[in-house]
Amino acid sequence: MPARDFLFITAFGVSLACLPAPALHAVEATGPEPLADPIEQAWRDATLYLFKESFTGFGEQDTREARLGRATLLLVQQPKTEANLNAAARELESLASAATLDDVSAGARYLLGRIAHVHRMQPDPAAAAGHYRRLIAEQPEHLLADQARIKLALIQLYEPALPRDQLLARLDALAAEADALARPGSRRDFHLVLADAVRHHRLDDERLLRHYLAADAAGVSRPTSRANIVVAVGELAARLGQHDLAHAYFRRFLAEFQRDYRRALVRDKLAALPPLASAEPATQTAAPDAR
């Protein structure tokens, strides 16, 4: 054998030999200490997007909760296939149609709506609306019924070629429905969805302002969203001549959001407003910019 070949073979062998070494030492991803209850662990894994571990965690147990968990996880199994979605839908239908209505049946009915609405390649809004309506009728006080109302509103407000008078009537009815919700978070999200629809359909500023104010009153958690709403209320109030309200929200924005690049624009708009009707400032005074 020529020496050159020998060297090549040796070098190749060395490379080959080094390959399995790290693999021998490879580990599964570790996490925090697993919980004693495998079902609880599986739900926790699902919140962390550890879908494979979560699916395995639900195991073969035949409890309704474990069946809901497995069906839920089927919606994001890779590769995403219609077969998986169909299997999930069959299991969810079985859980949702149980004689006793409970949290599991609410979750199952809601997910049936979601499969038709967003998970399938070809959405079926009519089928989704059917599931949402059934959930609202069967368990009207459930948190997921609130969510179903909001998702249903999304379907109703973006229906193609909806005549303007019907759209306005729907918006009014949905606004009343949103106001009637008991949970502040649901009221907030419902009104924000309505506000988006008002913007999309280029409707009046009064309507838009009303939805933003309702969402703000319900409490907006996400800072970016809250900042947008506070600015929008100030801007809309200024456009509509509600100067006291504009003063209040622009000042609130300047006090609350120190690191936002709209500050100068808002200061300019505040300065351009007529003086407050009352002598007292509406809210806190504007804070100086922070670095």
């Binding site: 919140t47 997007y49 809901l68 839920t72 949290d103 997910l111 967003v118 948190l143 997921l144």
Partner: peptide
């Protein structure tokens, strides 16, 4: 966005289940 929304459905059902437990 659809991908994120679909994953959030899983998180939603999971947090709901954990909250019930």
């Amino acid at each position: 966005l659809a991908l994120n929304i679909a994953r959030q459905d899983i998180a939603l059902i999971s947090y709901l289940a954990l909250g019930q437990r």
